[in-house]
Simulated scan of single mutants.
Amino acid sequence: MRRVSLRLGRAGAALTAVALALVPGTAFAQRGGGSSQGSTTDTGGGREGTSLVSRVVYSGATAGTQGGGGGDGGGLQPVGDWTPPACWYEPRSAAEFRDYVETMYDDTVNTPGQHSYAKSAVGMFRNEYKDGTYENYNLDKKDEGNWWVAVRDEDRSMEPEAQACDRKPFWVENGDPVPVENAITPEVLAELAYSRVELPATEVTLRPEGNTKVNLPTWAWLDKARFKETSVTAAIAVGGLNIQATTTAQPVSLKLEPGTPDAETYPASGECAIDDDGSIGEPYARGKADRTPPCGLKYLRSSGDGTFELRATVTWDITWTGTGGTGGDLPDGTFGNEQAVTVQEIQAINR
Rank of each mutant, 00 (worst) to 15 (best):
L20H: 02
G287L: 10
V149C: 08
Q344E: 11
E191A: 13
K224V: 02
G336M: 03
A14Q: 10
V122R: 00
S195H: 08
T43R: 09
A201I: 04
G324M: 03
D143V: 08
N146L: 06
G80A: 04
P258C: 01
R286I: 09
P283Y: 01
N146E: 08
A312V: 13
Q37T: 12
E264K: 12
G175L: 08
T313E: 06
K298R: 15
T326R: 07
A234C: 13
D276S: 10
K130I: 01
S35Y: 09
N242W: 01
T246M: 04
S5I: 11
A183K: 11
P177D: 11
L6F: 09
N182A: 14
S5C: 10
T205V: 04
G240C: 14
T313Q: 05
V109G: 02
S59D: 07
G70Q: 01
Q163V: 05
I318K: 00
K298M: 13
G12S: 10
G60M: 05
S54W: 02
L222F: 00
A193W: 01
V23D: 07
A273G: 14
S36W: 10
D276I: 09
G259R: 08
W171S: 10
E271A: 02
L199T: 00
G296N: 12
T246N: 10
T307C: 05
P84M: 02
A220Q: 05
